[in-house]
Simulated scan of single mutants.
Amino acid sequence: MYVNCHVECLCDNKELMTCVRSRFTEDMKSVPIAHRETQSWSDKFALGAVRFLRSVMDLATGSRHPVERVVGGSKQVVEWRMNGSKWLVRFIFLESVTGVPRMAGEILRHLRSLRRMRMDNGWIETLIGESFNERMYLLTFLKLYSPGIFMRTMILGAQGVFFNGFFLCYLVSPKTCHRFVGYLEEEAVIAYTRALQDLDAGKLPLWSRLKAPEIAVQYCNMPEGHRTMKNLLLYVRADEAKHREVNHTLRNLDQHIDPSPFLSKFNDESKIHPSKGLENLKGVGWRCEDAL
């Protein structure tokens, strides 16, 4: 059983629930890569759309994924070297895109709440928190890299097409849209994980001495001794993993009557429930019966 709770008036956007930055934990170092298998035509459409968007993003940012090639009769993995600038370009493009869907969904749910004169059961607050979180990380990476006119034009065009397309899709099938965002966040977790692997492997030597921008220190509440570029990526990846869980879970719920389980209080403390932090993290999302 669950008890839906009202969200208190927030005087500071730092308190929005979808960011797990309250303290640096060991859980951030072990965020897993996860993929939810498709179970319906809706899921397949969402996954296909994400893969298409990823190919566009790869082309726009000049980044590539490792590929397998047959060399001398045996398969070998060919890795493409990504430098710090390319990673930052990818992050900026990624954050500028992932911040769009939640706002489109929030607008539509807000208008529906006004029309029906009913509470939205925490969905609006959840989506606002996620969009704010993505925007703050975009502003953080912009402190480290300033994109040129071409990149800004690409972002402008992508945002214009993406917002309107997602807005229309959310009118038709909000479940498909939340699954799309879940798959999109899966890609984000993969991107930040690979960047961390490059950093640990010594492929990004400048980042080993780079400090996190002050905006990230304040927003993430980063403690002394953890204000490095590596730890910034750990914070961002942890939030992306949480967004992945949230949207896969929201896709599984009844879009009209179920509350957001991430803003609910549960009576039965003996069972594992969704939370605001990394504890009980489910990369593929919660089933409806488990989430509520």
Results as ranks from 00 to 15, higher is better:
81 R>F: 15
57 M>A: 10
96 S>Y: 00
58 D>K: 15
236 V>D: 00
110 H>K: 09
22 S>T: 04
24 F>Y: 15
13 N>L: 05
20 V>N: 07
127 L>H: 02
115 R>T: 09
260 S>C: 12
103 M>E: 09
12 D>V: 08
90 R>Q: 09
177 C>D: 08
151 M>Y: 08
246 V>C: 05
210 L>M: 15
147 P>I: 02
158 A>Y: 00
27 D>I: 15
154 M>A: 09
128 I>C: 10
254 D>M: 07
151 M>P: 00
218 Q>D: 10
87 W>C: 03
226 H>Y: 13
266 F>N: 07
43 D>A: 13
181 V>E: 03
21 R>M: 06
150 F>N: 09
92 I>P: 08
251 R>C: 09
200 D>T: 06
37 E>S: 14
117 M>W: 10
37 E>A: 15
187 E>R: 07
288 C>V: 09
263 L>A: 01
204 L>H: 05
40 S>F: 01
191 A>N: 14
40 S>T: 07
94 L>D: 06
262 F>N: 01
4 N>K: 10
46 A>Q: 03
37 E>C: 06
237 R>P: 02
16 L>R: 14
133 N>S: 14
253 L>T: 07
184 L>Y: 09
166 F>Q: 03
157 G>Q: 03
23 R>C: 12
190 I>F: 08
137 Y>R: 04
270 S>Q: 13
247 N>D: 02
283 G>K: 00
121 N>E: 15
4 N>Q: 08
190 I>D: 11
88 L>A: 07
271 K>H: 05
72 G>H: 14
76 Q>H: 14
84 G>C: 07
92 I>F: 07
233 L>T: 04
256 H>G: 10
169 C>K: 06
111 L>F: 11
194 R>M: 05
220 C>W: 00
129 G>K: 06
51 R>G: 04
73 G>D: 15
9 C>L: 14
238 A>H: 07
107 I>S: 01
202 G>L: 06
138 L>G: 01
170 Y>W: 04
272 I>G: 03
233 L>C: 12
137 Y>N: 06
268 D>I: 04
267 N>S: 13
205 P>A: 05
143 K>H: 11
242 K>I: 03
112 R>I: 01
286 W>L: 12
94 L>R: 06
58 D>V: 10
166 F>I: 10
70 V>Y: 02
208 S>I: 13
8 E>V: 05
38 T>P: 02
9 C>E: 15
231 N>A: 03
45 F>E: 08
22 S>D: 12
171 L>A: 03
